[in-house]
Design a protein around this nucleic acid. Structure first.
Length: 304
DNA sequence: CATTCGTGAAGACGAAT
DNA sequence: ATTCGATTTCACGAATG
């Protein structure tokens, strides 16, 4: 018992022809990438064909064609407020009641479409949060951000998964949870580039002002993954603080700085640690470690 | 042999135009 | 929209231990 039916359309995002209509929800979704192509978007043309004018007159009827895939069968559920079904005027009390009914009717439609979207999004959020081992409060923040993004109509025409990933990334930055964009993208089905686009859109549309992350935000995570002692870690922090004061660094990838600081701190304390190890722990290349290391040791004139 | 170091080509990005 | 400059990454070879 499947409620999905293939639609004759190509996904604008991935080009796949696996675009599918959910008969229960009326949502049109790309089966390959999850992009929400549209809600209640369907062929509004005539649902019949006529070969002659007589036939045309025969089949012609008033109103939009019926599409059974829509939950309300495509019929407009307009509630009249001025007159009853026979065109007679209504009493003021009943009129007011009709206004209320109509408001509720419109509101209910919005509500159901929003909750359908949310249930999908929250499932995705939980999945990604688990993969990233996010603390609950970060996840909460991400959920709030997503809800606001949904309220601002940022999801229409974009992939739910991408907006969810972007919300998670934003929440991580807000709480200074040192998750890189790459890490988020790694557990998501969406591309890093797309997630970043969504992230920027969210920041602007919601007026979020998130401070940039510095090298210090990444030290503990990298150190832990590389198995660096707390002592060396502390030295790395001091190196970074001094580098900041001397304006020795700028415009560089913060993770690279943090990784290099840990590396040189390890050298100074004689703790064995290859560039390869650090590079892997920081998800960078050894080249970047080397370049940062060179700048660090020169500009802070550390003997090495 | 593993590690380290430097280099040139290529891609990505922001800023300037 | 294109161009430019800085940065990172990749692939490689050389030096070092």
């Amino acid at each position: 018992m499947t409620y999905l039916s293939t639609v004759e359309a190509k996904c604008p995002e991935c080009g796949s022809a696996e675009v599918v209509m959910d008969r229960e929800t009326g949502e049109t979704v790309c089966g390959a990438c999850g992009l929400v192509v549209g809600e209640g978007m369907m062929d509004r043309g005539p649902d019949w064909r006529a070969s002659s004018q007589e036939e045309r007159d025969e089949k012609m009827r008033v109103g939009p064609p019926i599409d059974v895939t829509h939950y309300d069968k495509g019929l407009p559920t307009m509630i009249k407020v001025d007159e009853d079904a026979f065109g007679r005027p209504l009493s003021p009390e009943v009129r007011q009641q009709m206004w209320r009914l109509r408001r509720w009717n419109l509101r209910a439609r919005l509500h159901t479409s929003a909750s359908r979207n949310l249930s999908k999004a929250m499932a995705e959020l939980e999945l990604l949060s688990d993969k990233l081992s996010l603390p609950p409060f970060v996840r909460e923040t991400a959920a709030v951000i997503y809800r606001r993004a949904l309220g601002e109509n940022l999801v229409q025409g974009r992939s739910i998964a991408a907006i969810v990933a972007a919300s998670i990334f934003a929440a991580c930055r807000i709480h200074r949870t040192s998750k890189t964009l790459r890490e988020v993208a790694h557990v998501s089905t969406r591309r890093e580039k797309e997630i970043f686009r969504s992230y920027r859109l969210i920041l602007r549309s919601l007026g979020l002002d998130i401070p940039l992350d510095g090298p210090l935000d990444h030290v503990s995570k990298i150190a832990e993954r590389a198995g660096v002692s707390g002592e060396v870690q502390g030295l790395a922090v001091r190196i970074l603080q001094e580098a900041r004061e001397k304006r020795a660094v700028g415009g560089k990838d913060p993770t690279g700085l943090a990784a290099a600081a840990l590396y040189v701190a390890g050298l100074l304390r004689g703790e064995k640690m290859s560039q390869k190890d650090i590079a892997r722990a920081a998800d960078l290349t050894e080249v970047t470690i080397r370049n940062r290391k060179r700048e660090l040791t020169q500009k802070l004139h550390l003997g090495l």
